[in-house]
Nucleic acid binder design. Structure first.
Lengths: 151, 151
DNA sequence: TATTGTTATACTCTATAACTATA
DNA sequence: TATAGTTATAGAGTATAACAATA
């Protein structure tokens, strides 16, 4: 019945909460918060980036990026650099410490993946990932429909 | 290889982000935030509750509960009532509007579950839930070990 | 004119510490 | 003395609006 569906959703939400706790705690050990780490992650993968680009990627206001970068600068993770051609813009770049923290984060990411899925048989894992993909697609469509209908 | 593990984790995290967005948006339509809804949800399921009990259940400071209840009172979702025997304590109770919102939330919860899992074959769903449970257990054990080792 | 990032202001969630009223 | 909840203070994330410097 429908109860099996809500049981599955509750099981999924329980995992969501735990994952969030885990991530928050790990980042706190590095002296980072989730939004700051997200920003640093983007710089790590895309190289020096303007704040405007970061605001778009994070789906957040430019004002908010100012605050996040301020925090990361204070923590020694990034620096603000002059843009070579546009003097309005600033480039956010990782420091050595920032790069080291990001490398640590990537290691933590791989370790977490191994902890969660390392013992799972390959066929089982494939089925799980496929189910995750299906659920994600349905949710994305549902969100889109709600976004259109709700306006 | 290990890459399949990180792919699976990334797929899971993508779903986590979407679920969080969906929940935040749905609650915003009701005039609620996630922490306030969590508190109201507890009152809905346990009946009138002291702020101290809510602080423990939410794993949050008593000061924080004061703020959350203030917001819910301002929104007309709950009221503060005198405790019948302990004059230090206050009981947080749902208003009619609060109860109606919670009923709506429960309906949204069931609808979401149906959207995500309604099309899934029963065997598939069982396997998915079992895998979720396994992953959750491993994460919980890992978190505990890290919490002990990290101190 | 349009864009980049900032200051000004405000709201929410979170925490610690000091305090009031009651047990 | 201990407990329930508040005020005081602070930091982080988020937003809008007004503004400066630069395109």
């Amino acid at each position: 019945m429908a109860e099996q569906h809500t049981d599955a959703l509750d099981q999924l939400l329980e995992l969501v909460v735990l994952l969030d706790d885990d991530m928050t705690q790990s980042l706190a050990r590095e002296g980072l918060t989730v939004p700051r780490a997200h920003l640093a992650w983007l710089v790590h993968h895309n190289g020096p980036t303007t704040q405007r680009e970061l605001a778009e990627a994070l789906k957040v206001t430019p004002r908010n990026v100012t605050g996040l970068v301020d925090g990361l600068v204070a923590g020694g993770f990034v620096t603000r650099e002059r843009h070579p051609t546009d003097r309005r813009a600033t480039l956010v770049a990782l420091t050595e410490r920032g790069a080291a923290s990001l490398a640590e984060m990537e290691k933590g990411h791989r370790d977490l993946a191994a902890l969660l899925f390392g013992d799972m048989a390959e066929r089982e894992l494939d089925a799980f990932v496929e189910a995750l993909g299906d659920v994600t697609s349905r949710l994305r469509e549902g969100l889109q429909a709600a976004g259109e209908g709700g306006r």
